[in-house]
């Protein structure tokens, strides 16, 4: 039963990923693209957790943690660059 729930959750997250990717490709300004990138990385963390559930390997959660750290640093660096002061 849990496998069915995980499959449906993966499908819904995939649709959300495609919608955010549409904003990433379309976004009129640079900040729109950065926001879409932020949302894409958060959805990717969800994907990593779901793949850890599917494969039943807990070591994938460390990958998710490091991914969250790096994406946060990237978004902060781009935002400070756009703001024009470091």
């Amino acid at each position: 039963m849990a496998e069915t729930f995980i499959t449906f959750a993966t499908i819904l997250s995939g649709i959300a990923f495609l919608l955010a990717l549409g904003r990433f490709l379309k976004g009129p300004s640079t900040v729109d693209r950065v926001i879409a990138f932020d949302v894409l990385t958060v959805i990717s963390i969800t994907f990593i957790v779901l793949s850890a559930l599917i494969e039943e390997r807990g070591i994938y959660l460390d990958v998710a943690l490091v991914y969250a750290l790096l994406s946060f640093l990237g978004v902060i660096a781009i935002a400070r660059y756009l703001e024009g002061r470091f």
Binding site: F8, A9, S13, A20, T46
Partner: peptide, 17 residues
């Protein structure tokens, strides 16, 4: 909880678009 979280992600993507 997995389905509820994925639904929130879906609505977030929809609102973003």
């Amino acid at each position: 909880l997995l389905l509820a979280g994925a639904s929130f992600l879906l609505f977030g993507g929809l609102g973003l678009l």
